[in-house]
Write a protein that binds this DNA or RNA. Sequence first.
DNA 1: TCGGTTGTCTAGCGGTGCTAGGATCGCATC
DNA 2: GATGCGATCCTAGCACCGCTAGACAACCGA
Lengths: 192, 192
Amino acid sequence: MSVQERKERERAERERLIVATARELAERQGWDAVTTRRLAERIEYSQPVLYSHFRGKREIIGAVALEGATEMAAALRAAASAADGPRARVTALARTYLDFAARNPAVYDAMFQLDAGLAFATEDTPQPLKDAFAALLENLNEVAGDGVHPGLFTEVFWAALHGLATLTRAGRQPPQDTERRVELLVDRLAMV
Amino acid sequence: MSVQERKERERAERERLIVATARELAERQGWDAVTTRRLAERIEYSQPVLYSHFRGKREIIGAVALEGATEMAAALRAAASAADGPRARVTALARTYLDFAARNPAVYDAMFQLDAGLAFATEDTPQPLKDAFAALLENLNEVAGDGVHPGLFTEVFWAALHGLATLTRAGRQPPQDTERRVELLVDRLAMV
DNA sequence: TCGGTTGTCTAGCGGTGCTAGGATCGCATC
DNA sequence: GATGCGATCCTAGCACCGCTAGACAACCGA
């Protein structure tokens, strides 16, 4: 049994290597540069090996997305718990979200821009994604306002952040006013 | 001169045909299905002809985007001018924006999701894009609130709409609550 | 030591965006 | 009306893509 265990361990290790390499390559040169050939070369295996771990490129992107979702959820919770009072919490939440998107553009793309074949907003949504949404929900609950469903409020807030994140990064909004936009958004949306 | 004029006319006509065909194909089967080969076949010319009109596929997407921007600007202005009072105007604006995105997903992608090589938020931004933004700005001016720069307010409002449009369409937010999300957004953001 | 399974690689399929270079067509001139 | 010349278009092909069939080697248990 020990031999088999070792093999499984090595296999899992290689899978981590694939995901990490894909992420790094995407972050450095964009997802377009992440081809199965290049990825295989970097991990020093042949192309078909990738397909013994993942169904295809989509699933690799999906793996990066889930990794990112886990990190984002943690970052959001950390930021929120370090802030005092509802208003500060919401501001910290928004800043952290946008900061994550700006610092990990490729991961953010994997999560929300590319088709990674992940289910959203359904029962079989992967746990990390649910958890990232939950991290928002937990902290926005208190500022949704009377008679407003917290889930609905979170969706709107999230959408606004997502819009700011993507439009800013794609150069569709001037980057220098980001902070003022965040303040305006929090001012108006959050009932404090 | 008449011969040359006729040729130019035919050339312009063919260019319109390329853009219209690309748009229709993208709307029917998605941008992935818009390959230069397929596009060439549809317009009944060979591939290289496309490159005598456009630098590459990106520029074709860009042409569709500009067409879409013109239409969106018109739709926004029409909706706003048909509404009575600031509150109704903003609501109509938001609904029209989201409706446009939902009805013309491929065009919307060309405008805001794909890299069409267009400049945004600079001097050399193409006029149709400036105009679409202006159509929002004109009608949001009155609800930005005291001391808030209308341009900044428009950016935030636009970002929120963009987030709702993209997340809803990608199945990342439940589609049935769209209307309630719009109402919440307008309620909170617009100062009426 | 052997047989069989498991794992990996080479090679190749049909597709992509894009382009070089040859052929053909239509125009202006003689 | 014949002819030379440009503009126009197409065939063929480049390098690359995601993905896979089938040959091969390495390792395990008996």
